[in-house]
Nucleic acid binder design. Structure first.
Lengths: 212, 212
DNA sequence: TGATAATTGTGAAAAATATTTGCAAATTCT
DNA sequence: AGAATTTGCAAATATTTTTCACAATTATCA
């Protein structure tokens, strides 16, 4: 919104930087150069400087970057400074695992509500997260002002559930279904298609014998 | 190996094409044109033809593509025609879910062995998959000729486990740990960093108000 | 203090990747 | 046979990402 468009490639590296910077912070390092970072995260130092530069001048020439302020900066950029509540839609196999999955290693993302069609699951609490019936999806999302949803429902209901979630105010969806859901253009979808990932992996395996 | 390098963007679209072609097949459609496909999968028809052309001349001018042979062809390309055995390393939350996860909707991928350090888990069977102690990792991978592994271990042991798996002959790793593991260049790693995906999603959410 | 070394930030070039155009060639359809 | 389709593909274009290269700035040390 405020800042200009950051390249997708850069955005994807931000969490990687952030993670390593935190390690440095824990190790009480006060400064770090792009070259040092480069070694650790396996990204060319020029690329790192370029990436950082999209956010302005974060470093000091002849010195490098101050670890603490860099962490603080990225914490803000990556919304790690406040809790983001996330809804989990579909408590099957995968959904269940994600309930237990420790998303908030660095303490910013929390699944605060889950939904399932299964009446028996509904109104119980799993891993500290209340599970609501699917019929309450929209209402609960609205009430709890949840803007991010993880979609782990069967493919055949993916679209209708999505529509419902969007109606409930969701603006970002982490989509684990193999379906390419359709959403209004102000809603962002990030697809995580595990089957697809495996297939692509196997494809490359069979057809090339090298990394890239 | 045999075929030349296919662009990553193309490779990622293959499963999408494949999925839709199967739908056509089920609906007893015998032919399809790139234009028709285009509508369905939301990819420009020229791009589709370009994509297909990497694999040779699959269609007939003036006619289009024969659905059945196309499906057959992609089935082979995507290794859907034979079972790929996969090892699951680390039966924690996520690992457990993946054991149950129906990877082989179209019947080609099967987790045939799982591994965990937990002595109590080892030597039991979960969801029909035998769980071996981590100490047997290399041996079992070798014996069962497993070339693909799903890595769902804690980050702090990710690298050593990887080394072990690679020693056991693994050529492809679906890496769920947040660590960027180091492997020989003939081993391919596909990273699935859920925390990262969520963070990136949230980042885009906060910073742009449009899809792309 | 002044010289030397380190390091950023960034314009511009280069490289990599991906899409689109345009059309000859082949095929079908009537 | 002639019109209408539709592929396959070379080449052009567009987009995205990385890298180069160096002035500007700051730190460090003799």
């Amino acid at each position: 919104m405020t800042d200009q468009k950051i390249p997708r490639a850069t955005a994807k590296r931000l969490p990687i930087y952030y993670r390593y910077l935190n390690i440095l912070l824990d190790a009480d390092k006060t400064r770090v150069s792009s070259t040092e970072l480069s070694d650790a995260v396996k990204v060319d130092s020029a690329t790192i400087r370029r990436d950082f530069s999209y956010f302005g001048a974060l470093g000091k020439r002849g010195y490098g970057y101050d670890v603490e302020s860099l962490v603080k900066f990225f914490k803000k950029i990556l919304n790690q400074d406040r809790l983001t509540n996330v809804g989990l839609i579909g408590v099957g196999n995968l959904g269940h695992a994600l309930l237990n999955f420790n998303f908030h290693q660095d303490g910013n993302v929390r699944i605060s509500a889950a939904f399932d069609v299964n009446e028996e699951l509904a109104n119980t609490i799993h891993s500290g997260v209340p599970i609501y019936p699917m019929t309450d999806l929209r209402k609960q999302l609205e009430e709890q002002q949840i803007q991010v949803a993880i979609l782990t429902v069967p493919a055949d209901v993916a679209q209708e559930v999505t529509d419902d979630a969007v109606a409930g105010g969701v603006k970002g969806i982490l989509n684990f279904t193999p379906l390419r859901i359709t959403v209004p253009k102000d809603v962002r979808v990030q697809n995580v298609d595990l089957t697809n990932e495996l297939q692509t992996l196997i494809y490359f395996l069979e057809h090339y014998n090298h990394k890239d």
